[in-house]
Design a protein around this nucleic acid. Sequence first.
DNA 1: CTGAAAGCGCTAACAG
DNA 2: CTGTTAGCGCTTTCAG
Lengths: 318, 318
Amino acid sequence: MANIRDVAKKAGVGIATVSRYINSKGYVSKSVGEKIQLAIDELNYTPNGLARAIFTKSSNMIGLIIPSLANPFYPELAIGIENRAKELGYRIILSNTEFLKQSELDIIDSMCRHRVDGIIVANASCVKEYINCGIPVVSLEKQISPDIIHLSSDYYKGGRIVADYVLEKKFKRILHIKGPDNIESAANRFLGFKDRLSKFNISVDIHEGMYGEDVEGIAEKLKAYEFVFVWNDDLAISVLNECYYGGVNIPKDIEIIGYDDIFYSRKTIPTLTTVGQSIAAMGEKAVDLLSEQIQNKAPIEKEYLFDVKLIHRNSTNV
Amino acid sequence: MANIRDVAKKAGVGIATVSRYINSKGYVSKSVGEKIQLAIDELNYTPNGLARAIFTKSSNMIGLIIPSLANPFYPELAIGIENRAKELGYRIILSNTEFLKQSELDIIDSMCRHRVDGIIVANASCVKEYINCGIPVVSLEKQISPDIIHLSSDYYKGGRIVADYVLEKKFKRILHIKGPDNIESAANRFLGFKDRLSKFNISVDIHEGMYGEDVEGIAEKLKAYEFVFVWNDDLAISVLNECYYGGVNIPKDIEIIGYDDIFYSRKTIPTLTTVGQSIAAMGEKAVDLLSEQIQNKAPIEKEYLFDVKLIHRNSTNV
DNA sequence: CTGAAAGCGCTAACAG
DNA sequence: CTGTTAGCGCTTTCAG
């Protein structure tokens, strides 16, 4: 692969001139410019961004760390992030941790080595590694430290508005299918839900340990309830399916509300009532904030809570 | 950020020794090693992978170009790719083209500049840019050139086995909801379907121009048919929903078959009969083949057709 | 306007 | 075993 020296030689000019020409920096006379372009074309030359990065100390790459690609929430987030990043001239390095801490550690290390300009992490489980890595970090869904910018949907409020709905409908037999304890965002949505209901002395049963695909038997259990709040849409969609085949009619027998407003929650049968905010918008904002940090225009505000609302669809009776 | 020279100075050793220590290459005495490690820790030193890459001519990054993240097929593909890449020590740079050729052009250019070791592209629309970029490429879903390794599911056969099912059930009023013409893989699945049915003088109506979300009105149209083959699962899932709310019962009024076997096709109501193969396995194989090329163990075989099968679920009556 | 030269952080001969 | 040295490909003063 040709380098800048080859181009310079072929064009019969100095290496610095080629550099100036490529980067449209400083003056290069028209005639010299043409000669250089010719040489570039003939040699099929592409500037080496790594060499450039090593000098400018800017790789134009953003690391994106997410726990999983299997829950569509994260691809949707990635859409917002990637699009905005592209607009700002950044490239995305994507890695998923599979919710494994060791994996996250490795990824952080690798990204630091690759000298990404900044990192966006969703549902982080590491802490000090982000604090000490020496590059700007924006955290989604979880507050890592007071110094690290953090955006998330208002989980607590999200839980609360579901509770409000429950109160309005005067449900008594209520179940919450709970997310993993170590996921802060999951815990918070439950907290908001429970706190609110407690105020009115309404108790909630909890179904634990069912986070992913395996929803077998849940239909049977649901027969005892009027309402179920599932910690995320991805799981709620599985529950919907299980109910259908388990002879539980939604929303007649039991109403169900999810959380996230992922794309498919609009396409389920029945369509899924859920707590949502614009996932993509959050991703975009994350990139903006990261970009500001990278340029040392560090925003003073470190906490960004995105408002949520209950999106009524057909898994509840309005 | 500290560099290797800082470490060497602090440890009171030579720069090469540090390099050897970091990369566990060549001999470094235990005592010297300890001193170096100490310096590394104190300085919070991370080796600069870019500088390393520029020398070794290997960035350990693989570019992944997909048309979209919105169709879950691609995230599922990315899962397989990312996991295998991680095992082999590669990092993924992900970009989606939004099906825009110009976007794809920009991405290729950017990835070349970043000196990725290789590119995996799904549903490519560029051709010569891949041929001329001078780095290994593996193409998914589309044959770019005879020289570029190409993996895809056997679309033609996929279409054929759907046709076989239609023949078996003796359907007469048949609709195909067709993908975009410029997507080869979409065209092929239809071709296999149509060719087979033609042999038995069975004709197929085609619904064109409905590729994405907007399925409004399709339920009404479907009332005239016994069977519909939808070009991919993502769209089929929308159709399912539209039928439900449009008063068309599946599979009683009309049977429906999709293509891809994405994750959610197992969770729809009814669950979706579809043509599938292991998406993740295809992604993994792509990485393996790319990796071999990167190491100049270029595989002789350039074409990899993945077998498909009809996965019977409840959107058809077995 | 243009080019020579120094240096970014790292690796790998090659002598000691 | 270890350090010196010469690059890798690029950018950027700084004289011409």
